[in-house]
Design a protein around this nucleic acid. Sequence first.
RNA 1: GCCCGGGUAGACAAACUGGCAAAGUCGGCGCUCUUAAAAAGCGCUGCCCGCAAGGGCCCUGCGGGUUCGAUCCCCGCCCCGGGUACCA
Length: 848
Amino acid sequence: MSERRYEAREIEARWQSVWAQEGTWEVDNRTSQATAGIRSHPPGGTTRAQSDKSYVLEMLPYPSGEPHIGHLKNYAIGDAIAHFRRRTGHRVLHPMGYDSFGLPAENNAIKTGVHPRVATEQSIAAFQRAFRSWGISIDWRREIASHEPDYYRWTQWIFLQLYKRGLAYRKESAVNWCPNDQTVLANEQVIDGRCERCGHEVELRQLEQWFFRITDYADRLLDDLDRIDWPEHVKTMQRNWIGRSVGAEVNFRCAELGIDYPVFTTRPDTLFGATFFVMAPEHPDVFRLAAGTPNEQAVHQYVNHALTESAEERGDAEKTKTGVFLGRTVTNPVTGEEIPMYVADYVLMEYGTGAIMAVPAHDERDHAFARAYDLPIRQVVAPKDGSAVDLRTEAYVTKADDAILVNSGDFNGLTPKAGFERIVHWLDLEGIGHPSVNFRLRDWLVSRQRYWGCPIPIVYCDEHGMVPVPEDQLPVTLPEVQDYQPRGRSPLATAQDWVNTTCPRCGGPARRETDTMDTFVDSSWYFLRYCDARNDDQAWDPAVLREWMGVDQYIGGVEHAILHLLYARFFVKALADMDLLDVQEPFNALFTQGMILGPDGQKMSKSRGNVIPPTPLIERFGADSVRTYILNMGPPDQDAAWNDNALSGAHRLLSRLWTLGSELGAGARGPLATGDAEAVIQPADPSGDGLTLVRKANWAIDRVTSEFVGRFGFHNAIAAVTELVNDLYRYPQADIEARKFAVATAASLTFPFAPHLGAEVFEMVTGRRAWEEPWPAPDPAMLVADSFELVCQVNGKVRDRVRAPSGSSREQLEQLALAAPGIVAHLEGHELVKLIVVPDKLVNVVVR
RNA sequence: GCCCGGGUAGACAAACUGGCAAAGUCGGCGCUCUUAAAAAGCGCUGCCCGCAAGGGCCCUGCGGGUUCGAUCCCCGCCCCGGGUACCA
């Protein structure tokens, strides 16, 4: 009697060393341009279509400290998919890397004096150990880290390509400034007026900065969302962020000064209701307009106050509207009326033209302003049914077809939609307006006044101004500095030897750009580099990209729904326009996994003390158990709270499977044993309990497979395997061939979730390697039973169940149901109205 | 405010989007093995009546509707989570 038990650590170490020694998860490029380290097939060799490849990618980790349990979830999901795709005949690219530039390492350096590189590389080492101990199937030859010159050389190269095409540019504008981190931030990094990283209130500062012209791609970024298989809510978030608004630009003329002021409006149909006009405090003409009017002083005071407000104060929609009369009027182009001009901080310079026509009757904000300053409110839209609207308390905001235009001259009686079209057309003919589209999306601010990032490859020459560093001089390496403390300018500025350089154009003295790039630049193209990671001559060989791109399945957290996923899409489109690659979208399919919450149901955080570090769990239960548990917690796209007991349940499942394997196999052989390898063969003619097991095994194959091709409901897949294992314990008398088949199937199906244990048990029973076996296909004959339980209902309520042969005719089923005792009892005293028959399922007897 | 998700046993969840509500896991209760415990294995576990066999009624946040039949579709409401918020 064997006392052996499932020893996860032993098993996992053994298989991990096999995979490392044999390079099991490495995949070669087929393309001819051989590059060091990654073999390529010679040209003329078999070039199959791209259709057999599958690029499975999890978002690369930001290496800070030790990996946490959320990382494990991310990579457990991706690894399961990668394994499944390999075994369904795909060449799978499944690489790994590190997003290794960034603020936390730098802030740590400020605190401790340890170079960010040291802390980062320590963390990378911890991640590497973790990935190996978790048994993630990675092609390590393609590993990258964005802080290494080998990588950021090409980040700089891409910057220069964007610069050449006018997609990277410098401009002065009001930008978000975090006084705590002492750097500017992209719009996307400001959450509720606060810094995404440190939570400090963000200020607006007028600064000259580097931008990427992502707004040029607004339409394509929006339209192409329809072509990719992403969760609908992520697409919606991107659509809202891009914020396309269709409307018109209309000129309002200030006759006194003879200047036209265009405004953007989405409601040209309400033009007749425009009773005043408002400009943003930043509008360049505000002082000019007020000059010489009695309001000049008040305007200056108001503007100065508005400009010093924080982004949060300024953005508060709840606060009462304020503003000041500019002392001038403009002409409403359709009514000919002179309407007063105001400056007010609810109008934003960055959107539209920085000026608006105010229609207080039909816009909430204008309504609030009109009420505060007692301005006229003129109704120009009314309910079609003639009912009255009380405009004293709130605006009547509708574009629906149950409303019509009123007080709008020739346009009276039109629906808002029709009025929109007709008025814009009329404005166009008169030359005072035209159709216009506006976006909420702003250009991407990419420069940062921080140390630990990719240097911007630009120098400033007294003679030639801004000069790009020639491509053959890349990388511009990050210099060593003594002091990482940001002081409003980049710490790089203190590296005098580095800053002072020569102009590539004239050889004269020049200074380097000292800002570094936002780390989101690094992560906007890493998935391209994996394809050709060891290429020293170029960022990638376009032919290699043709082989692998786009990513067939991308997996990561929703927190990147806007930032990373939008920037990466922009990069790919821009690079495609330069003929450097030929896909339009980086990620054809996206899966967003949910968070693992602490046992208290709260987000894990050090301050809450509810963090579950993965390593002790791995040591105690093994990576397979933790991986299986994490995938079994619930739908993987949903958040779920940690539960130690449930983890031991997953461990129990694997242990039970291992026990079955060790009983049926000739004991553990070890992976290199030369046993009598037998294919997994379904017994030819199973019967009794054996037939039950064979059927269950086929049912499990079917269920697990459908989760992989469908919604990735791995908890359901694992439940199916659990049922199969439970049945193996329930029917110990089944014949040995059927049991072997069922255990081998269970191991085979478990392999993507628990690869070590899956491989071990599979090998014990068959002498073969699970990952070299094709994914099992269910035997259709075993998926259908020859009889089923016919549900018998009366008026939709279940009253009986009887066995019926599969494929029975309606008449047969009706007779069976009507004879069922439970039905007979409920028919007494009732009149039979009709019979509903669902073949192979149920009969419903409708009575009165 | 607006836009998405979501609400099913004590907990996490399933039900292939109109056909047996609750698979599977955890927890709880009981049993087997054991000197004992652990481990392992087995059984029970929505509510009410009944010692029980069994039966009845109820049950997917709440209220209505459509349907032979609703967790699923429609209308109204309540709660939770996320996104976004003066974008004209």
